[in-house]
Design a protein around this nucleic acid. Structure first.
Lengths: 239, 239
DNA sequence: TAGTGGTCTAGACCACGTG
DNA sequence: ACGTGGTCTAGACCACTAT
């Protein structure tokens, strides 16, 4: 049970939509009815509905109501800063993470510029590969500020870095800027990834910031191109 | 001037941030101050700030204020259903659109399933290529329901399909489900695109829905892999 | 302690769709 | 005419940050 009313309402409704208790195509109860049901004011209901709308659960139609959308064969969206482990758990596949390197280093020129660092600031460098069905298809290179992450072990990196950062270190991640491109596989890719005939990789580069706007991580996630898939739900902004 | 107060406030503030009148790192005036300045209630200000936050302009910090983020070298996000023409106008580059095919057709099995169609429903099929700097790097294949788009000409397709749909036909686009993958170039790609040594293409497939939840378009946008770039701003959802 | 953002409320008026 | 969602308001209380 969450402390916020509108999030509880969101979770209740979204769960009912996912389990088709509220089937696609049908109208949700009106905002006033929902207000009575959940004993909440209309604005609070509207906050919950806004979340449902943003995440593709409903479409609001003025004068009519909120239509439940078909959310059934919705592949997971990679959007929203979801970590590798959360994705793996979501799909239920058997993944394995291998830590290839874990060292403390000073940033080179490129990283200094990219992350806006002094040349003597220490960084954790973590290289991990992700294996599924005997094939290694993802290579993750992470660079984390020692100032924000004072301690790091191979065990943590193998388990879940984000779990550790959010729940152990109690840091709150705020947002990330991401960029996706396709590139030719390089030396390192050939070393770690199962490439066979595939020669290109999808590279997702992210700058990750904390709640207080401080940059603390740069990640380069390299996916074997044929195993990459990005799913998105996008609303049209009418500004 | 928009009719909605919170959108006006959003546009005013975002423009001031983009022009660095409100420089990155600085705090916005408090919500109460903004309420006085814009003669709006606090909740209205908060709606404007929520928009700024979602679009990467600010980071709100409880007990402190709203920090202006660095939005300077923010490449345009492809998110948000932006059409080719809007992107081209945004970057200011000289693009050229060529209509390769414009026909009426019945859907094949694949399209029937994908778009949930009857086999006798008529579709517009539009194939367009996009050229920049002498190289043709994007191939767009669109399928539109004749029921929703009764008339279509090569001229319209060359100019802007979305302009026509939204402003002439007065249809409102609601949302889209997108999927991005990387594939080997096929016959058609080699026919229309300038591929030289590149052999893979990034394929963006979208199902586009109207405001009233009706599906009306399927689009397959094929990009020469080395010319593709997807930029995203993602917030961490703490539910 | 004072000021900030986060949540919630009750009520008002408007715009839109349906009968 | 009625019910729907869309906007806006004024006010309350809480949680957090600063000092």
């Amino acid at each position: 049970m969450h402390e916020n009313k509108f999030i509880n309402i969101y979770q209740d409704l979204s769960s009912k939509i996912r389990r088709a208790i509220l089937p696609a195509g049908q109208l949700l109860p009106s905002e006033n009815e929902l207000g009575d049901q959940y004993r909440a004011s209309r604005e609070t209901i509207r906050k919950a509905l806004a979340l449902l709308s943003r995440n593709g659960y409903i479409q609001k139609i003025q004068g009519k109501g909120s239509v439940v959308l078909d959310v059934s064969r919705f592949d997971f969206p990679v959007s929203g800063l979801t970590s590798f482990r959360e994705l793996a758990e979501h799909t239920g596949e058997q993944w394995k993470t291998t830590v290839r390197q874990l060292i403390l280093m000073k940033p080179d020129k490129k990283l200094q510029q990219l992350m806006n660092l002094e040349e003597d600031q220490n960084l954790w460098k973590v290289i991990r590969s992700r294996t599924v069905g005997g094939e290694t298809v993802i290579l993750d290179k992470d660079f984390l500020l020692l100032d924000t992450v004072p301690m790091l072990t191979a065990d943590i990196c193998e388990h879940s870095l984000y779990d550790y950062i959010e729940n152990e270190l109690n840091l709150k991640i705020g947002f990330a800027k991401k960029q996706i491109t396709v590139e030719e596989a390089n030396e390192e890719d050939r070393q770690y990834l199962t490439l066979s005939t595939v020669s290109s990789v999808v590279v997702v580069r992210s700058l990750v910031y904390l709640d207080n706007t401080q940059l603390f991580q740069f990640t380069e996630s390299r996916h074997r191109a044929d195993k990459f898939r990005f799913v998105d739900f996008a609303r049209r902004e009418h500004l």
